[in-house]
């Protein structure tokens, strides 16, 4: 169980350590803090977007121990000791990841709001399955809604990235 202190209002605040994009961060948070809020409000990692906040749209997708999850539905305290990769951690140093490059090349975004989640889901797929079929790509990003409906270019970008891994 994470250690906690009781604040002046009688609310418990827990020391939680998460590894985000390769660095450990320890934050003192309330138990009801959601992962998406820890990332955006406490760690200033605002690449992860808040969309529907109900697990439907996938804008807040991050990898939790390598698996894509909706950060809006996960308690930050339940991530204590675990590894998180956000869109900010996808690129390799100064260089964009191949998935990011291919999204640009294929114009795999229009307004761009779904893009961080799309790229995280796509990268997680390619980590597990480096040569997916179109069906597998569509299945992997089915939890990421693009309201500009630019799916054709997104799928093309992911398939092209797979060929150039």
């Amino acid at each position: 169980m994470s250690s906690f202190v009781v604040d002046k209002d009688g609310i418990k605040r827990y020391a939680v350590t998460v590894n985000v994009n390769g660095s450990d961060y320890t934050k003192v948070i309330k138990a009801n803090t959601l992962l998406v809020n820890l990332l955006r409000d406490d760690l200033d990692l605002t690449g992860t977007k808040r969309g529907c906040e109900l697990g439907d749209c996938g804008c807040c997708t991050v990898m939790l121990d390598g698996n894509p999850v909706n950060a809006c539905l996960v308690l930050a305290i339940d991530c204590d000791g675990r590894e998180i990769t956000t869109i900010e951690g996808i690129q390799d140093g100064e260089d964009l990841d191949i998935v990011q490059e291919k999204f640009i090349e294929h114009a795999g975004f229009q307004c761009g709001f779904c893009t961080p989640g799309m790229i995280v889901s796509s990268r997680a797929l390619l980590n597990e399955n480096p040569s997916p079929t179109e069906y597998e790509v569509r299945e992997a990003i089915a939890g990421n809604l693009c309201r500009c409906t630019g799916y054709v270019n997104i799928v093309a970008a992911v398939l092209d990235a797979a060929e150039n891994l």
Binding site: S2, I11, K12, A31, N32, L34, R50, L75, D78
Partner: peptide
């Protein structure tokens, strides 16, 4: 969107 406060337990067994 934020959740209301609650008491949190994470039992080991």
């Amino acid at each position: 969107m934020y959740l209301p406060d609650f008491e949190y337990y994470a039992p080991d067994s």
